[in-house]
Design a protein around this nucleic acid. Structure first.
Lengths: 350, 350
DNA sequence: ATGAAAGCGCTAACAC
DNA sequence: GTGTTAGCGCTTTCAT
């Protein structure tokens, strides 16, 4: 699959051999100035460096890692870089791996399991030092495959106790409780949870947290699920449905919505009905702190997820993985509440 | 617990040779079932595939690209994944490269030129098919270096007419004009531009656009620059300074702020002074459509930047780069205005 | 301090 | 169809 035409090949890449020739040394020496400069006499070192500059040499990383058997990259696969929690994970992982002199390569699966698997393969084939994976819904197949092949993997944001890997999680159950506590404290006596399939662990856990609090408080608890969290306009539909059910004089309602994106649509739809006051009649909040979907006329209450810490922690676990006596860990990080106008109203905000 | 055998070492990676042995064929045949399955008899193909599964073989991408001289990845280096415009570029590039069967590897420089350069090196050494670079401020050195080494590069968001590369830009000047037009149409007669060093092209261009409109309209135009766009709390300081200068009865002021992050802080600071009404007394808007910083109690007007299209376009140009008769292009994409409450107030919004 | 040479795991000719 | 073999560009002993 070279180029069909004659010789218009991109320009030939200078190799270590050419550098050696130009500098009048052996390739071993060139390799040494690259990797252990102190093993080389200052004079020759200069000469080689100069030659490197002259020919415009860039060492071939593929050859290098093939020969040496080492790679200096960690890779991260996230489902969707459009959700700020994954951006935070990237930053956390970036920061941690940078400190170790490793480079972090990021891939976004764009919400497509096939793309996710492709990247897992790419990174496995690249013999990346390890893979940080925040899997899409249930991808045990993919995880297991990578795992089987002896690659180091740390799973983020998905609990797989049976999978023989390190995992880094956030406490979604506690987050659910926190959210419910928040609106109950504000005086709401009717809760509605908008979720999706419980196959998605974060959905299930947040739901449970809220449900438990509602039960303990003896408060009305309703649920409403969407088919597809990513479908365009789903939030608007949810909001419209809620608005239609509502009539003046109803007991105030607090709606806890599993993702901020969904909540954004819902809030916008509800605000469109001018006769409903937010939050006096209906309070809303999101539950996944996704800044990327805060495009609402009034600020939305949400949870703050520990993405950055999770990324950093994942790198730590990945490195720990290479210790002989390593035993897999399951780290759970806390979430926090970020109260804003959609539940608080115009009172002083936290 | 993973290693059943005695050796505590990370388990040895199965190679094509082992697969060949297990399957009872030659390595050439294994290579063929991997790369040109149709060149292989169905029966043997099955046998090889089965062997691959049995030994858990994953081909070594480094050896592969070393031998074949091809790589199937494109790489993208952005200054800061925390700005949604770069996320959009990633998505655009991802989408376009996916269609070509190429994988996109993303690196964020975390606002550090040294990190940026490190990634440029990593990708150059990886012999990535090409590099998409949205450079930090002025990194001609880095660009030039990569360029010199004969790598394919497309520059995004930085105009380098003298640099012999393809570039993909957005029309920041028009964006500035749009913003100024918007607030003038709303009736404001005093403009304040909050910017930073004109070394940053987007800052300079947006400033020029606004200044030109103000001059043409014969309207009061003021400027205020921050030292460091990324410094924590800079937006708050700006907002506080503006609020302090303001006194009741002043002619209404429209503040156009070069980044949404800065604008976010400024807006929050101004709202903290309860006696100033937004937007009646002071209207504000950001100019870089950064969703990640829309954490304000009232929705902020801003520009909508064509990140996605830029990413897609960049990939197209990168591919075009390998054509024999390629001549470098400079593509400029339009921006749009997204009017919200911080300038419109509570009237119907666009 | 430097050079020579044996691979690293794979692809791609080419032979059979 | 399948096997053989010569590299790809580099690292890494091991001599010198």
């Amino acid at each position: 699959m070279s180029n069909g035409q004659g010789q218009p090949r991109a320009r030939i890449e200078p190799t270590i051999t050419q550098v050696a020739e130009v500098a009048g040394v052996s390739i071993g020496t060139v390799s040494n100035v690259l990797n252990s400069p102190d093993k080389v006499a200052p004079a020759t070192r200069e000469r080689v460096l100069e030659a490197i500059g002259r020919v415009g040499f860039i060492r071939n990383g593929n050859a290098r890692s093939l020969a040496s058997g080492t790679v200096h990259t960690i890779s991260l696969v996230v489902p969707d870089i459009t959700n700020s929690v994954f951006v935070d994970m990237s930053r956390g992982a970036q920061s941690a791996s940078g400190k170790l002199g490793l480079s972090l390569l990021i891939a976004s699966a764009e919400s497509d399991p096939a793309v996710q698997d492709r990247y897992l393969d790419v990174f496995a084939e690249a013999r990346s030092r390890g893979i940080l994976l925040a899997p899409m819904s249930d991808s045990r197949a993919g995880i297991q495959r990578v795992r089987d092949h002896g690659r180091r993997v740390v799973i983020m944001n998905y609990d797989a106790p049976d999978l023989d890997v390190c995992t880094v999680l956030m406490n979604n159950y506690a987050g659910g409780r926190m959210a419910a506590d928040h609106v109950i404290e504000l005086g709401y006596r009717r809760l509605l949870f908008v979720g999706a399939s419980d196959e998605l662990q974060p959905v299930r856990d947040r739901r449970c947290g809220i449900r438990d609090v509602a039960r303990e408080a003896g408060i009305s608890f309703d649920e409403m699920d969407v088919q597809d969290l990513r479908r365009e306009g789903e939030g608007l539909r949810v909001g419209t449905a809620i608005a239609e059910r509502w009539s003046p004089g109803d007991e105030p309602l607090a709606v806890l919505i599993v993702t901020d994106t969904l909540a954004e649509g819902a809030l916008n739809a509800i605000l469109a009905k001018r006769e409903i006051r937010v939050p006096e009649d209906i309070a809303l909040m999101g539950l996944d702190g996704n800044k990327m979907s805060w495009d609402t006329p009034i600020a939305m209450t949400t949870l703050e997820l520990p993405g950055f810490a999770m990324g950093a922690e994942a790198v730590r676990l990945l490195i720990a993985e290479s210790e002989l006596d390593h035993v897999h860990e399951r780290v759970v990080l806390p979430v926090a509440l970020h109260a804003r106008e959609s539940t608080l109203g115009r009172r002083a905000q936290s």
